[in-house]
């Protein structure tokens, strides 16, 4: 399955959007059904990393300090553990997912993910590029996903619309959160963010 699209973030700068999309906590907030995202250290298993998931998530933009986010931002080559519960009516598979940041160089980022539930699994590669327009920023994104096992065999009818919906919700949420950022960031924040690049 291949998906792609463009999300437009109004009145934002590329740097703001970049910083927001580099923040694991912002991503977690925006992903429907995501219980945690934690960086994996060394060879540890997803379960081990999961134990380090904070009880309460730290603040994200606009409340968070940009420097703090830059500190925790995704790093090329690093891996993250995430738990996703995709709830579709009574079907609620929990996928323990490993996300790898394949490349990350402003304004482009590519990541891949592999998730497993009890009887199904998925693999995904995805990427995005930020394109600055007059006042707005376009996030041009694409994703290619493969599903295996029971969900692939029995849930064929559901996968495509659900995946579209999940991705759609994600960008809606990012848009909403960044809208807040851009509204707040008339002055100092914007320049501090720019300063980070």
């Amino acid at each position: 399955m291949e998906f792609n699209g463009t999300a437009t973030i109004e009145d934002a700068s590329t740097e703001e959007v970049w910083l927001a999309l580099s923040d694991p906590y912002m991503i977690k907030e925006a992903l429907p059904g995501c219980a945690f995202i934690v960086e994996i250290e060394g060879d540890e298993e997803i379960e081990e990393a999961a134990e380090r998931a904070p009880e309460e998530d730290p603040e994200t933009l606009p409340e968070a300090e940009p420097e703090e986010i830059a500190e925790r931002a995704f790093v090329e080559g690093s891996r993250y553990a995430a738990r996703m519960q995709i709830s579709v009516g009574s079907v609620k598979p929990k996928f323990d997912t490993m996300v790898t940041i394949d490349d990350r160089e402003f304004p482009e980022m590519n990541a891949s993910a592999e998730g497993e539930s009890s009887n199904s699994s998925f693999e995904m590669s995805s990427g995005m590029e930020l394109v600055e327009t007059e006042n707005d920023v376009d996030v041009e994104w694409w994703a290619e996903a493969d599903v295996f096992g029971r969900v692939a065999q029995m849930g064929q009818r559901v996968i495509n619309p659900v995946a579209k919906r999940v991705v759609g919700r994600f960008f809606d949420e990012i848009e909403a959160q960044l809208q807040e950022v851009s509204e707040e960031s008339s002055g100092g924040l914007r320049s501090r963010i720019s300063g980070l690049f």
């Binding site: 009516g89 009574s90 079907v91 609620k92 598979p93 029971r150 029995m154 849930g155």
Partner: peptide
Amino acid sequence: AELIAGGHSLLPTMKSGLA
């Protein structure tokens, strides 16, 4: 918990191991 009425939507999903 799920409600079950006639079960013609829920049971097939449960039988296939999805729910």
